[in-house]
Computed example of a mutant assay.
Amino acid sequence: MEYRNASRDFDAFLIDARDTAMLATTNQAYTMVEAVLTVFRRRLSIDEALAFAAVLPPVLRAIFVSGWDTAEPRKAFADRESLTREVLAFRGDHNVSPASAIADVAAALRRHVDRPAFERALERLPAGARGYWRA
């Protein structure tokens, strides 16, 4: 059933993320979501990233692992301002994410996942991971 409703559920999530971030289009929201997920993934080991991906809805799971260069050096978690700069730099001129992008995606994501499973997954990740998804 999770896969049968994947497109509908993703559309609902994307509209939620768009509205939370006060963006004009779902295309803008998609880029914001992709940036937030990619910046987060860069800070996890492969095992940690796969454990996190397992609690995401199917389309978000696919976005999370899409284009993943597993040989890329792992980055350390940094302060929110530094992480936000990295999110805003993602895809350059095609990214109109607000400075609140991480918190906006975090808020929308929490409304579209199994909250207890999501929280359990975060508990197994580095402390910076939990802070990253603080809305």
Score class of each variant (00 low, 15 high):
A53P: 08
A54E: 14
V55L: 03
V55H: 02
V55Y: 00
L56W: 04
L56S: 01
L56N: 02
L56M: 13
P57W: 02
P57F: 03
P57R: 08
P58S: 01
P58M: 04
P58T: 00
R61T: 02
R61N: 06
R61G: 01
R61H: 04
R61P: 01
A62C: 08
I63V: 15
I63E: 10
F64P: 00
F64H: 03
V65R: 04
V65I: 14
S66M: 08
S66K: 12
G67R: 00
G67L: 05
G67K: 03
G67Q: 06
W68S: 14
W68Y: 11
W68V: 12
W68A: 15
W68N: 09
D69W: 12
D69L: 07
D69I: 10
D69H: 10
T70D: 15
T70M: 13
E72T: 12
E72I: 06
P73V: 13
P73M: 14
P73N: 15
R74I: 15
R74L: 14
R74N: 11
K75C: 11
K75A: 11
K75R: 15
A76P: 04
A76D: 10
A76R: 11
F77W: 02
F77E: 00
A78D: 09
D79R: 13
D79P: 05
E81F: 12
E81R: 15
E81G: 14
S82A: 13
S82D: 15
S82R: 12
L83C: 05
L83H: 01
L83V: 02
T84C: 05
T84G: 05
T84M: 04
R85V: 06
R85D: 08
R85Y: 04
R85H: 09
E86Y: 01
E86C: 00
E86W: 03
E86S: 02
V87P: 06
V87M: 04
V87Q: 01
A89L: 02
F90Q: 11
R91F: 14
R91M: 09
R91I: 12
G92C: 04
G92F: 05
D93G: 15
D93P: 14
H94P: 02
H94A: 12
N95I: 08
N95D: 11
N95L: 12
V96S: 14
V96W: 09
V96F: 12
V96E: 08
V96N: 14
S97M: 10
S97Y: 10
S97K: 04
S97L: 05
P98L: 04
P98I: 03
P98Y: 03
A99T: 09
A99I: 07
A99F: 10
S100G: 05
S100V: 06
S100E: 13
S100W: 05
S100C: 07
S100N: 11
A101L: 07
A101V: 08
I102D: 00
I102G: 01
I102M: 04
I102S: 00
I102K: 01
I102L: 00
A103T: 05
A103R: 11
D104C: 12
D104M: 09
D104W: 06
V105A: 05
A106N: 06
A106R: 07
A106I: 08
A106L: 07
A106F: 07
A107R: 14
A107E: 06
